[in-house]
Design a protein around this nucleic acid. Structure first.
Length: 526
RNA sequence: GGCCCUAUCGUCUAGUGGUCUAGGACGGAGCCCUCUCAAGGCUCAAACUCGGGUUCAAAUCCCGAUAGGGUCACCA
């Protein structure tokens, strides 16, 4: 039998990082066993369904490289893959359940149900419906309807016995049927709810393995009840530990960002990304700028491979506890048996570390392609093709300093026109003073800058080594330290105190731009 | 509250009865390197929730307590 797994997002928002983890495990399992991965859209709830929120979800999956064999956009033999298009099919299933006496029409008003449940909680009883407004005959239905009530259909759960099932992660599970609530499967407006649609779809789409987050564990008995009533085969189940909040075991929620920002690591990663976003300018979708959503990472230049590599380790590990996996290696190694049982909190700092590794191992040529779109969006580069050679020098000089593609914007001063460099004489003076530490007299900036300019101007070729030699020679004759002196050059040429090697920085700028900037600095310091 | 799940460094985890004075990674601290910032190298601190069993032997098996979490919708 071919393995078929699925992920079924609701188009109610952006792609959630916990959802991606679940989708990844489904994808890996299908790939590992030569099966199919299906992307179905759970849009049964019309009120909450936002059509415009579907596209970013699909794009997120495409960006990650989690391709689906059947489902949204691509179609397939089990169409439709949108639940909103299957209402008659679901209603037919409801009718079957009704005919077999496994479901019933119910006429309780929402507030009546609520009162019963509140009473049950108060009396510390299980919340089980009394079936007081259950209508089993046409006469009963007519009577309730005469009272002005509208009916919904509820599944009639057994009140004795146990439901046993095997879960690939949780192993043997046993629950008392008597504790299972009669849930609504068809609303009073005729639409159906998640549990029913889910069972029907999994059957229609021949899903063999239901791999989903642990919060669905408690849905499993009623789904088993329904699928057996409908005569469907039971799929294999695997309930994954859910992805928890940073530093806590609570379920991750995209609405709690302000709270997560109190976590120092989380804030660091957020701030780093925010700085990039600010340099790019207006974000396409500010509400998606949230480390709980994959769009966040996409926007600032994280790599799908790094994100996936981090995510596969949230709730899964190999025996040798290895960490680096390519997608192909994950497929080879993955198994449900090694899924961990306890919830794992999201550690964005660790994700960041994975990204750093991936960036470091990327060849320069590929880094350039990753980085160019960011330069274009920040309006630092207008012609990407023409800029390649220069960008290549910057990327090379930056070495292991870039972690995400957006980090290229840290070197904006190399792309900005000379007149936009803001030079601060006070900062340059600070470094100059350090260069003359121990000396009796510290020359003024106005005095030293021309000497530095002259030293640098004579470097031939205009490269790291010659610039270094020239600066050191000047330091020697002036009785200064070369190190801090190079910082003076950096500040004069870039306006910044940090960056890669000052000599490399000058070399990348080139003689002309360098001298022009030093001249401007000179003017500013007299 | 009922039902269910879970419990190893701050975090992700390895560990399935002796090889555990518990290993790795991220994060943290320190040192080295150094023109700044990174990167890199070396070193350090840091955990088996508790209590009972079973056993010659328990992080590992059993029971209980405790703690955390999930779920109990005409949401998915």
């Amino acid at each position: 039998m071919t393995v078929r797994t699925r992920f079924a997002p609701s188009p109610t928002g952006y792609l959630h990082i916990g959802g991606v983890r679940t989708a990844l495990f489904n994808w890996l399992y299908a790939r590992k066993h030569g099966g199919q991965f299906i992307l179905r859209i759970d849009d049964t709830d019309q009120d909450r369904n936002q059509p415009e929120a579907l596209q970013p979800i699909l794009e997120g999956f495409k960006w990650l490289g989690l391709t689906w064999d059947e489902g949204a956009e691509v179609g397939g033999p089990c169409e439709p893959y949108y639940q909103s298009e299957k209402l008659p099919r679901y209603q037919e299933a409801v009718r079957q359940l009704l005919d077999k006496g496994l479901a019933y029409w119910d006429y309780a008003r929402p507030e009546e149900t609520k009162t019963e449940m509140e009473l049950a909680e108060k009396e510390k009883r299980p919340k089980i419906y009394s079936r007081r407004w259950m209508a089993e005959t046409a006469a009963d239905r007519a009577r309730f309807e005469a009272e002005g009530r509208t009916g919904s259909v509820k599944v009639k759960m057994p009140r004795e016995g146990v439901c046993k099932f095997y879960d690939q992660v949780r192993k043997d599970i046993e629950v008392q049927w008597a504790g299972e609530q009669d849930i609504v499967i068809q609303r009073s407006d005729g639409t159906v709810t998640y549990n029913l649609a889910n069972v029907v779809d999994d059957f229609d789409m021949k899903i063999t393995h239901v791999i989903r987050a642990e919060e669905h564990l408690s849905n499993t008995p009623r789904q088993i009840f329904m699928l057996e009533g409908l005569g469907y085969p039971r799929p294999e189940y695997a309930h994954l530990p859910f992805v928890a909040e940073p530093g806590s075991k609570n379920k991750l929620s995209k609405r709690k960002i302000p709270q997560y920002l109190k976590n120092a690591d989380f804030k660091k990663v957020y701030d780093h990304a925010k700085a990039i976003a600010d340099r790019i300018g207006a974000l396409a979708a500010p509400e998606s700028f949230n480390p709980v959503l994959v769009d966040f990472y996409k926007q600032v230049g994280y790599f799908p491979a790094a994100l996936l590599n981090y995510l596969v380790l949230v709730g899964w590990a190999t025996e040798d506890n290895r960490e680096a996996f390519t997608l192909a290696e994950m497929v080879r190694e993955f198994s449900l048996e090694r899924v961990v049982q306890n919830p794992a909190s999201l550690d964005v700092k660790k994700l960041f570390a994975f990204q750093a590794r991936h960036m470091q191992s990327l060849p320069v040529a590929e880094k350039i392609e990753q980085v160019l779109p960011f330069l274009v969006r920040a309006a630092l580069v207008s012609d990407a093709d023409a800029a390649r050679a220069f960008v290549s020098r910057v990327v090379e000089a930056a070495g292991p300093r870039m972690t995400v593609a957006g980090d290229i914007l840290d070197y904006d001063y190399l792309f900005l026109p000379d007149e936009q460099i803001s030079f601060d004489p006070a900062i340059a003076t600070k470094h100059l003073t350090a260069a003359f530490k121990g000396a009796t007299v510290v020359p003024s900036l106005a005095e030293m800058l021309p000497k530095l300019r002259a030293a640098v101007a004579s470097a031939e070729p205009f490269a790291h080594d010659t610039l270094k030699t020239a600066t050191e020679a000047l330091a020697q004759t002036e009785g200064a330290k070369a190190g801090p002196l190079s910082q003076v050059l950096r500040v004069a040429a870039t306006g910044y105190e940090v960056g890669f090697s000052a000599y490399d920085t000058l070399a990348v700028l080139g003689r002309d731009r360098c001298l022009a900037r030093l001249d401007r600095a000179l003017k500013a310091s007299v």
